[in-house]
C-alpha cells in the first residue's frame, strides 16, 4: 500500500516543484538577468571600487604623485610591485631627492588584495576597473606604471 502512496506523494511533490518553475516560465521577468558581455562592452560599467588592476594616474603635463617611498612595495604580500628608484638633484632646493625610475607592476602575480593602495601616502596608485587581462604572452602582464618621461608633481612629499 505504501508503494502506491509513495507514487502518489512523489507525483504530488514533483508537481509542487514544477509549479514554481512553471510560474517562472509563464510569468517571465522582463529583460534578462544575465548580461551579453562581449556585446555590451561600450555600456558595461563596473562598480567604482572594483579591483581590476593597479594604475598610476598622470595629469595632462605627464606628472604623477609617486615619490618613490616604496610603501606599496613593502605592503605587497607577494612581490608584485618593484620600484627602481634613483636620486636626482632637486633644482629648487639643490638637495638630492628620491625619484622613481620605473614602477614595475606584475599583474600576473597580483592577488588584488588592495594593500598597496591602502599603504600609498600620496594616492599615487589607484584601482582601474579593467578586467580584460587575457593576453597571448605572459610578459605583457608586467607593466611599467609610470609613463616614459613623467616626473613627480611639485610639492608632493611622503
Amino acid at each position: 500500500m505504501s508503494y502506491f502512496s509513495d507514487i502518489y506523494k512523489g507525483i504530488k511533490t514533483l508537481l509542487t516543484g514544477m509549479s514554481v518553475t512553471g510560474g517562472y516560465f509563464l510569468h517571465a521577468r522582463k529583460g534578462a538577468i544575465t548580461q551579453e558581455y562581449p556585446d555590451n562592452r561600450e555600456t558595461l560599467k563596473m562598480f567604482d571600487r572594483f579591483r581590476g588592476e593597479v594604475v598610476m594616474p598622470h595629469n595632462a603635463d605627464n606628472r604623477h604623485y609617486c615619490t618613490g617611498c616604496q610603501s606599496c612595495e613593502i605592503a605587497c604580500p607577494n612581490g608584485s610591485i618593484e620600484i627602481i628608484w634613483d636620486r636626482a638633484v632637486d633644482p629648487a632646493t639643490g638637495k638630492k631627492k628620491k625619484k622613481i625610475d620605473k614602477h614595475i607592476y606584475h599583474l600576473s602575480m597580483c592577488t588584488m588584495c588592495g594593500l598597496c593602495i591602502e599603504a600609498c601616502p600620496t594616492d599615487a596608485i589607484v584601482w582601474a576597473p579593467n578586467f580584460e587581462n587575457s593576453v597571448y604572452d605572459r610578459s605583457a602582464l608586467t607593466k611599467v606604471l609610470n609613463q616614459p618621461g613623467s616626473s613627480v608633481l611639485d610639492g608632493i612629499e611622503d
Binding site: F47, R49, R51, T111, M112, C113, G114, L115, E118
Partner: peptide
C-alpha cells in the same frame, strides 16, 4: 560585495583595527 569591497569572492575588506574603507 563588489560595490562595497571591490571584489566578489576574495574580498579582503577587514584589516587589523577595522575596515579598509567605509561601506558604500
Amino acid at each position: 560585495f563588489e560595490e562595497t569591497c571591490g571584489a566578489r569572492l576574495t574580498m579582503n575588506y577587514n584589516i587589523p583595527g577595522g575596515l579598509m574603507f567605509d561601506i558604500h
